[in-house]
């Protein structure tokens, strides 16, 4: 099924409801390899739900999702195998509090990929070192600052060497002075060509880092385009309204 030219992620007519509430009303989206796509939009526009659907954490109602050409929403697909290749980082970090930082990072490589402990720890330590966390590797998550915890969560996802990384408002739970260190990590990943879909409220960051900005409005992709155009001259009135509110709130 895999073809050379297949985009890393392709979504076709994705629908998702929670009870009577239709959160995603037919999303179409394609993300090429090495592309960084930022999802923007008001709270409740469906950004988080979309990311959770891509990672198969939420069952979808209709539509199809392809990763590297393979349909991951097909019946009978091994979801555990799919998830190995898709990393996700959550707003609330969701580190495992009963494990040290090192064990958090090595759990999946050891249990899922069956990497032996020394090799997994060596790799994890190298990753932690790269993101300035080597001295924290024996600490438990509750001892770390929010920014450190979120960086550990990113490292934990990277340890599985995902071909696609999903970031779900990863700075929204952080104190302002801790946001920069997390954004710096994401910037570095973008520079290395990591394919990412980022739901964010940090418009300045989105403008800097994104190859493409997608504006979600009430469960639909209202418009998308390069950040320069999206932030300077959005085509849709709703997008302009949204950005105006953001500017008034001092977030751009």
């Amino acid at each position: 099924m895999t073809t050379v030219s297949a985009p890393t992620l392709r979504i076709e007519a994705l629908h998702k409801s929670f009870g009577d509430l239709e959160v995603l009303k037919g999303i179409d989206l394609a993300v090429a390899e090495h592309e960084v796509v930022c999802l923007i939009g008001a709270s409740g526009s469906g950004k988080s739900t979309l990311l959770r659907c891509i990672n198969l954490l939420e069952p979808i109602d209709d539509g199809r999702i392809f990763v590297a050409g393979e349909e991951i929403t097909a019946h009978g697909v091994d979801v555990d195998r799919i998830r190995r290749h898709i990393g996700i980082v959550f707003q609330a970090f969701n580190l495992f509090p009963h494990m040290s930082v090192l064990d958090n990072v090595t759990l999946a490589p050891r249990r899922v990929l069956r990497t032996d402990r020394p090799a997994a720890e060596e790799r994890a330590t190298a990753l932690l070192e790269r993101f300035g966390l080597a001295d924290k590797r024996l600490d438990y998550p509750d001892r770390l600052s929010g920014g450190q915890q979120q960086r550990v969560a990113i490292v934990r996802a990277l340890a599985m060497e995902p071909r696609l990384l999903l970031l779900d408002e990863v700075t929204s739970a952080l104190d302002p002075e801790l946001i920069a260190e997390v954004l710096a990590v994401i910037r570095e990943l973008a520079g290395e060509g990591m394919t990412m879909v980022i739901a964010t409220h940090e418009m300045g960051f989105a403008r800097d880092i994104a190859n493409r900005v997608v504006f979600l409005d009430e469960g639909r992709v209202l418009e998308d385009g390069p950040p320069d155009r999206m932030f300077r001259e959005p085509a849709e009135a709703r997008t302009r309204e949204f950005l105006q509110r953001i500017i008034e709130a001092g977030r751009l």
Binding site: D80, R83, I86, G87, F90, F96, V112, A157
Partner: peptide, 13 residues
């Protein structure tokens, strides 16, 4: 539940 979700998202069964 977010703990189980985080584990599943890493590919754990």
């Amino acid at each position: 539940p977010s703990q189980a979700a985080a584990a599943r998202s890493l590919g754990l069964s």
